[in-house]
């Protein structure tokens, strides 16, 4: 059953939203979402890689021999990740300082490889683009949402991505729950959000 382009795009936003529905690519999800800004930065970097890798893999899908497809995907993905890393260092160094270690890890983010293998290798260029963009935006939204929960509860502040830092919960009545910005808080936050999403009945 062929899906329309819009369906390919929107499935990434709710029905197959990573990391909640697919529960893939958890390393950056847990690692960088201490603030909204980091989450959005990581999400955008991953989206770029996802879209470019999907595009290239789909363009080359008739050329790449099936036996070495994974190796080819990794070469393509690693190239774009390194590009992102260099460009981020050159033009968004403060963000690179925060995300540093996690950028090279986009290579092994199974969402990117998963989309190349499961979708782009079997579908045309336009639907692969729509798929990559949808999944990427879904991933960015998830990271931003988890980042927002952790940042607000953990520090009482909210950083508008690439903008001002707001203090929402002031120190006179709210003691920051620093547990939320540490690693175990990420697991618990992710688990609770997954639970809430599953409470919403799916069709």
């Amino acid at each position: 059953m062929a899906k329309t382009l819009a369906q390919e795009f929107t499935k990434g936003l709710w029905k197959e939203i990573p990391p909640f529905r697919l529960v893939l690519g958890l390393c950056p999800v847990l690692g960088v979402t201490t603030t909204v800004e980091n989450g959005v930065g990581m999400g955008l970097a991953t989206t770029f890689v996802l879209v470019c890798a999907n595009l290239l893999v789909s363009m080359l899908r008739n050329v790449i021999p099936p036996k070495v497809r994974i190796a080819c995907f990794i070469v393509v993905i690693a190239t774009f990740v390194t590009l992102v890393e260099l460009v981020m260092q050159a033009y968004a160094y403060p963000l690179f300082l925060k995300l540093g270690l996690f950028i090279p890890l986009i290579v092994v983010n199974c969402i990117v490889l998963g989309r190349a293998e499961a979708f782009a290798y079997k579908n045309g260029i336009t639907s692969s683009l729509a798929d990559g963009l949808g999944i990427g935006i879904g991933f960015t939204m998830s990271l931003a949402a988890l980042g927002a929960v952790r940042e607000v509860l953990g520090t009482g502040c909210f950083t508008i991505p690439f903008g001002a830092k707001l203090t929402l919960l002031t120190a006179d009545w709210y003691t920051p729950f620093t547990f939320m910005v540490q690693a175990p808080g990420a697991f618990i936050g992710l688990g609770l959000m997954l639970c809430l999403m599953n409470l919403v009945p799916s069709k």
């Binding site: 050329v63 790449i64 021999p65 070495v68 080819c72 070469v75 393509v76 190239t79 390194t82």
Partner: peptide, 18 residues
């Protein structure tokens, strides 16, 4: 031969671009 050629070309292109 096709496998070798494809991977070599892809890797060379990536390396050059980077």
């Amino acid at each position: 031969v096709k496998m070798i050629v494809v991977i070599t070309l892809l890797a060379a292109f990536s390396g050059g671009l980077l």
